[in-house]
Each structure stands twice: as C-alpha cells, then as structure tokens.
Amino acid sequence: MIINNLKLIREKKKISQSELAALLEVSRQTINGIEKNKYNPSLQLALKIAYYLNTPLEDIFQWQ
C-alpha cells in the first residue's frame, strides 16, 4: 500500500487542489482522489507532483 503526504505538503505550501490540478493538467477530482488514497498516481504524474511541489518524491509517497 502506498501512503501519501500530498495533502499535508500541498497545504503547507499554501497551494489549493485546483491550483495544483491546473499546474499538472489534471482535474481537481484527480488530486482529491490521490489525497484520499482512492487510487495511486502513475509514475509520470507522481514525478510531476514532486517537481511542482519542489519536494522529493519519497517525501510525498511512501510504501507501507
């Protein structure tokens, strides 16, 4: 199972779901689904999230 800290990191950086979704060219619902662990992002999307949040990938997504 993958645990993610996306919501915590996104809120710490004061970025809304809508703003992050626009940067990543995905829907706000996609961001919401990832934050709620409804599904895991593709590797490409995970890397883009880490890039736009300027945060190491392993700080956002962790195996458990």
Rank of each mutant, 00 (worst) to 15 (best):
R10G: 01
Q62F: 07
K12Q: 14
M1V: 09
N54G: 10
L43R: 10
N32V: 15
I15T: 05
N37Q: 09
V26S: 04
K14Y: 08
K36C: 09
I31Y: 04
I60Q: 00
N32Q: 09
P41L: 07
S16T: 15
Y39D: 06
I3P: 05
I49H: 00
R28N: 12
A50F: 01
Y51S: 09
I3W: 08
S18C: 08
L57P: 04
K12N: 12
S42D: 11
G33Y: 13
I3Y: 08
A21R: 03
K14H: 15
T30C: 12
A21C: 05
Y52D: 02
Q29R: 13
Y51Q: 12
K38S: 13
I34V: 06
Q29D: 15
F61E: 00
G33A: 15
K13Q: 13
I60G: 01
T30V: 15
A50D: 00
L8V: 14
L23Q: 11
Q62T: 09
N54V: 07
S27A: 07
L6P: 01
S18I: 14
N5P: 02
K14Q: 12
I60P: 01
Q44T: 14
Y52P: 00
R10F: 02
L47C: 10
Q29L: 12
Y52K: 06
I9M: 08
K7S: 09
I31P: 00
L24I: 13
Q29N: 14
Q62A: 10
W63R: 04
I3K: 13
P41K: 01
E35S: 01
L6N: 00
L8F: 14
S18W: 15
L57E: 02
A50M: 04
Q29S: 15
K36D: 14
L8E: 14
L24P: 00
Y51P: 01
A46N: 01
Q44A: 15
Q44F: 11
D59C: 08
I49T: 03
I15P: 00
A46I: 04
S27H: 09
R28V: 15
L57W: 05
Q62N: 06
I3C: 07
Q62K: 11
R10N: 01
E35W: 01
T30N: 04
E35V: 02
Q44R: 11
P56V: 05
K38G: 07
D59W: 10
D59A: 11
Y52W: 11
L47G: 07
I3G: 06
L45W: 04
S18T: 13
L20P: 00
V26H: 03
L57R: 04
E19H: 13
Y39S: 08
Q29I: 11
Y52F: 14
K13F: 08
M1D: 05
L57C: 05
N40K: 11
N37V: 03
R28W: 15
L47H: 11
I2D: 05
S27M: 04
K38V: 14
Q44P: 12
N5V: 04
Y51M: 10
S18G: 15
A50W: 02
I9W: 07
A46K: 07
L23I: 14
K38M: 14
K13P: 01
E11P: 02
A50G: 05
P41A: 04
R28P: 14
R10D: 01
S42T: 13
Q29W: 14
L57F: 06
I2P: 07
L8P: 09
I60A: 02
L57Q: 03
I9Q: 06
S42R: 06
Q44E: 14
A46G: 09
Q62Y: 07
D59F: 10
F61H: 01
R10V: 02
R28Y: 11
I34N: 00
E19P: 02
E58G: 13
K13C: 08
L53S: 01
Q29G: 13
K13G: 05
T55Y: 07
I9A: 07
N5D: 04
K13N: 12
A21H: 02
A21W: 01
N37L: 06
L53D: 00
Y39M: 09
Y52A: 13
S16G: 08
L53F: 08
E25V: 08
A21P: 00
V26R: 04
K36F: 09
K48C: 07
N54H: 12
A46M: 10
S27P: 15
L24V: 15
F61M: 03
K12V: 08
I31Q: 01
Q64S: 13
L6H: 01
L47P: 01
S42P: 11
N37R: 08
V26C: 07
A50E: 04
K36P: 01
A21K: 02
L20Q: 00
D59P: 02
L8H: 14
P41Q: 02
N32C: 08
N4A: 03
